[in-house]
Nucleic acid binder design. Structure first.
Length: 555
RNA sequence: GGCCUGUUGGUGAAGUGGUUAACACAUAGCCCUCUCAAGGCUACAUUCAUGGGUUCAAGUCCCAUACAGGUCACCA
C-alpha cells in the first residue's frame, strides 16, 4: 500500500519519466578499457573562457588520462543559467586547444559531441537525472520539499541563534516528515517543490574517505537532506549531477578544487545509496596570489588580470611556457625531470597524484617569465619569426609590417647568438622582443634617444666615430675586427687591454670598453646590446656610416 | 559557530624517525668579458607557525594553540 502511494507521488513528481536507473545502466555500460586506464573529465560552466586555476586542473586531468591511455572528456555544466554565455563552449575549447589540450570525447562545439556516453551537456540530460531521482522517491529515499527561501532563512536564523549546526537536517527538515498523502495533495494543488535526499547518515558517526593526494580524511557522516533537483528549472544540483554523470560516464578519477572537500561526505552517501562504485578523488590546491594589502587569496578571474589565459596571450608569453609552468605547479618533481630530459616531449613525463601540491600555491609570474625566457632561447630563428609574426599581427601592427617586409633580414637578427649550447637568453616574451631588436630596423629607429654615459663629450665622440669610419672599420672576421678597434684605442690614448686598464686606469683616457660603447651607442642608441661585431655585420658598412652620421647630427 | 584542509627561506618546493634541510625562481657578490643577456662560482632557513609530549633520535609521530583558506545555497 505504501508502495502504491510512493508510486503515485513519484509519478506526480516526475511525470513522463519511464526509463529506470537500470535502463541507463544498460545504456552506458562499463567502459572497455584496461584496468589501469583512467577516465577523467573537465567539467566547466560555459563561461566562454578558462582561467588559470581551471586550466591547471584541465591539464592535470588530461595528463592523468593520457599517461594511462585512458579517456579525458569534456562535459559542460550548464545547470546554472548565470554562468552561461553565448558561444561559451567554443571559447573554452579554443582556450584548451591553445595549450594542446584536446578532449578525446565530449563536446566538440556548441552543439555536437563525440563519444558513447552523452549527452555531454547537462541541460540535455534532464530525464536521466529525473529517472535517478524518481527511483530514490520510489525507494523512500527522497522527498519533495515545499519550503520557501524565507522558511529556509528562518530555519538558519534559529540555528544560529541557538548555536546549532546550520543546515536542513533531522528535525529541521520539516518536509521530511510530511506524509505521502500531504505531499501528494500539495503537488496536486500546484505547489512548487524541490527534491531532497532523505539522508540516512548520522552526524555522530565517522567515515573515512580517501583522497589520492592527501590520504585518508575523517568526516562525520552526511546527514543533510540536500537538494537533488531544483524547483524552478527542475535541473539537478552539482551534487546530484556529479553522481549521475560521473557514474554513467564511467569516470574513474575526479580531480577538482579543494573547495569540494567539504561536500565529499555528501557525494559518498549519494554513491552509496545507489550502490555505485565511488570514483577516486583528487582535491587540488588552489592557485593564490598576494594582493595589494599583502594577504594571500585565491586568484580571482574577476579581479586579477593574470588569472585569465588571455592575459598571457596579450603579453606574448608562449602557451607552451605557461604549460611548463603549470606543470611545475602540478607535480613538484617536474622541474627536476625537465632538467634531466631537456629535449624530451612533455608526454613522456608521468603524472603522479602523490606529487600534487595540496597547499594552495602562489602564482609566481617571475618564475613563469624565467621559464618563458629559457623556452624562447631554445627556439630557432625561424620559429621565433613565425610566432612573432602571429603575435604582432594581433598586437603590434607597425612591427608586423616591418617583419613581413624584411623576412630574411629579420631571421639574421633573431639568429644573433642563437643556437649552440649557450644560446642568448634575453627575450622573455614575444612582446619583449621589439625592445631588444628595434635598432636593427630603420623603420623602428626614427627618433632614437642616445644614452651616452662614459664618454659624453661631443668632440671626442666625433673623433672616435670618424676615426673608426676612416681607418679602422674591417668586418672580415671577428678577430681582425676587434684587433682594429684595439689598434684605434692605442692610437687615441685608450687602453686596448682591460686588465692593464684596471690596474692603472689613470694612465689612459679610458678603455676599449668605453670606445666600443661609443660605437655601440652611436649605432643602436643603447649602452647594452648583444655582440657588436654581429650587429655590425648584419647592418653592413653603408648602414653603419649612415647611423654614425645620424648620431653625430643629433648631438 | 560546526566540519574540513593547509602552514618548511622573499617565492615554488624536496623531505614518509637518524641528511651539512635537496632543487628551482628571485636577490647579492665574484669570475668570464667590448657592454648586456647568459654561463661558472659563492652567499642566502642554527631551523621547518607556536607550545608541550613520545623517542637514544622529530620538519617527519601525538596533543593543544595560533594563523590562513574552504564549506555549511534551489552556485558550481
Amino acid at each position: 500500500m505504501n508502495n502504491e502511494k510512493l508510486k503515485e507521488l513519484a509519478d506526480l513528481m516526475f511525470p513522463g519519466i519511464t526509463k529506470t536507473v537500470e535502463d541507463y545502466e544498460k545504456m552506458y555500460p562499463e567502459r572497455n578499457l584496461p584496468e589501469e586506464a583512467r577516465v577523467t573529465r573537465f567539467a566547466p560552466s560555459p563561461t566562454g573562457f578558462v582561467h588559470m586555476g581551471s586550466l591547471l586542473s584541465a591539464f592535470e586531468d588530461y595528463k592523468a588520462a593520457r599517461d594511462t591511455n585512458g579517456i579525458f572528456y569534456l562535459r559542460i555544466e550548464d545547470t546554472d543559467g548565470k554562468r552561461s554565455i553565448e558561444n561559451g563552449i567554443t571559447g573554452i575549447l579554443n582556450d584548451l586547444k591553445n595549450f594542446d589540450i584536446v578532449p578525446m570525447e565530449g563536446m566538440i562545439d556548441e552543439e555536437n559531441s563525440t563519444g558513447e556516453y552523452g549527452p555531454y551537456i547537462q541541460s540535455e540530460r534532464q530525464e536521466i537525472y529525473h529517472a535517478f531521482a524518481k527511483e530514490l522517491v520510489l525507494r523512500g529515499l527522497a522527498y519533495p520539499c515545499f519550503c520557501t527561501a524565507a522558511e529556509l532563512d528562518e530555519i538558519r536564523e534559529i540555528q544560529e541563534l541557538n548555536k546549532e549546526r546550520i543546515g536542513y537536517y533531522g528535525s529541521f527538515a520539516k518536509c521530511r516528515s510530511l506524509s505521502i498523502d500531504e505531499a501528494i495533495d500539495k503537488i496536486k494543488a500546484g505547489a512548487e517543490f524541490t527534491v531532497r535526499l532523505k539522508s540516512q547518515g548520522d552526524f555522530n558517526k565517522k567515515i573515512i574517505l580517501h583522497d589520492e593526494a592527501r590520504g585518508d580524511i575523517e568526516f562525520p557522516e552526511n546527514d543533510l537532506d540536500i537538494v537533488l533537483i531544483k524547483s524552478t528549472d527542475k535541473l539537478p544540483t552539482y551534487h546530484f549531477a556529479h553522481l549521475v554523470d560521473d557514474h554513467l560516464m564511467r569516470t574513474t578519477h575526479v580531480m577538482r578544487g579543494e573547495e569540494w572537500i567539504a561536500s565529499f561526505p555528501i557525494h559518498a552517501e549519494l554513491f552509496k545509496v545507489f550502490n555505485f562504485k565511488l570514483p577516486k578523488y583528487v582535491h587540488l590546491g588552489i592557485v593564490m596570489k598576494i594582493d595589494e594589502t599583502g594577504t594571500r587569496r585565491k586568484l580571482s578571474k574577476r579581479k586579477d588580470k593574470e588569472a585569465s589565459v588571455e592575459f598571457y596571450h596579450k603579453e606574448g608569453i608562449p602557451s607552451y611556457a605557461v604549460k611548463l609552468y603549470l606543470m611545475t605547479i602540478a607535480n613538484s618533481n617536474f622541474e627536476e625531470w625537465l632538467d634531466n630530459n631537456p629535449s624530451a616531449d612533455l608526454e613522456e613525463f608521468k603524472f603522479d597524484f602523490k606529487k600534487i601540491s595540496t597547499s594552495g600555491s602562489l602564482f609566481d609570474v617571475e618564475k613563469l617569465l624565467n621559464i618563458s625566457k629559457n623556452y624562447l632561447s631554445r627556439l630557432t630563428a625561424s620559429e621565433i619569426y613565425d610566432n612573432l609574426l602571429i603575435w604582432t599581427k594581433e598586437f603590434d601592427n607597425e612591427f608586423y609590417e616591418v617583419l613581413l617586409n624584411n623576412k630574411d633580414y629579420a631571421l639574421q637578427v633573431f639568429n644573433i647568438e642563437r643556437g649552440g649550447v649557450k644560446p642568448r637568453k634575453d627575450y622573455t616574451s614575444y612582446k619583449s622582443i621589439r625592445n631588444f631588436v628595434f635598432y636593427m630596423f630603420d623603420d623602428l629607429f626614427e627618433n632614437p634617444n642616445y644614452e651616452f654615459t662614459k664618454i659624453t663629450d661631443k668632440k671626442e665622440i666625433e673623433i672616435i666615430l670618424n676615426t673608426y669610419l676612416d681607418n679602422y672599420m674591417d668586418l672580415s672576421d671577428k678577430d681582425t675586427w676587434f684587433n682594429k678597434i684595439k689598434e684605434m684605442c692605442d692610437s687615441l690614448g685608450y687602453a686596448s687591454n682591460m686588465k692593464e686598464y684596471k690596474k692603472n686606469p689613470e694612465l689612459f683616457k679610458g678603455s676599449v670598453a668605453d670606445v666600443s660603447g661609443v660605437l655601440r651607442i652611436a649605432l643602436t642608441s643603447l649602452a647594452n646590446t648583444p655582440d657588436l661585431y654581429l650587429i655590425m655585420t648584419i647592418l653592413g658598412k653603408e648602414k653603419i656610416k649612415e647611423r654614425f652620421e645620424k648620431c653625430m647630427n643629433s648631438l
